[in-house]
Amino acid sequence: MDAFDEVRPAVECLDLLVPPVAAAVRDWGGSVPATDLLYVDTDPERADTAVLVKHYGPWLLEQSANCVVVAARRAGTTTLAACLVLGHTRADVNGVVRRHLGARKASFAPMDTALAATGMEYGGITPIGLPADWPVLMDAAVADSPHLIIGSGSRRGKLIVPGKALAELPGAVVLAGLGG
Rank of each mutant, 00 (worst) to 15 (best):
93 V>W: 02
73 R>K: 12
153 G>K: 08
53 V>W: 09
86 L>S: 10
111 M>S: 12
128 I>A: 09
143 A>V: 03
172 A>Q: 09
105 K>E: 15
168 E>R: 01
163 G>C: 05
20 P>W: 13
115 L>S: 11
77 T>L: 07
172 A>W: 14
164 K>W: 05
38 L>G: 11
70 V>A: 08
105 K>V: 12
149 I>F: 02
95 G>T: 13
63 Q>C: 06
142 V>S: 06
81 A>T: 10
83 C>Y: 09
32 V>H: 13
136 V>E: 11
116 A>N: 12
106 A>P: 01
74 R>A: 14
173 V>W: 06
130 L>D: 11
123 G>P: 15
174 V>M: 04
101 L>Q: 05
32 V>E: 09
174 V>C: 06
114 A>H: 06
97 V>L: 01
122 Y>T: 06
177 G>V: 09
170 P>C: 06
41 D>E: 15
27 D>S: 13
72 A>H: 10
110 P>E: 14
8 R>G: 00
129 G>Y: 08
44 P>M: 00
150 I>N: 05
82 A>N: 12
56 Y>S: 02
89 T>V: 03
157 G>W: 02
108 F>H: 09
97 V>N: 07
169 L>V: 06
147 H>G: 03
18 V>P: 08
168 E>W: 03
131 P>H: 10
128 I>Q: 10
93 V>T: 13
68 V>F: 15
20 P>Y: 13
2 D>V: 07
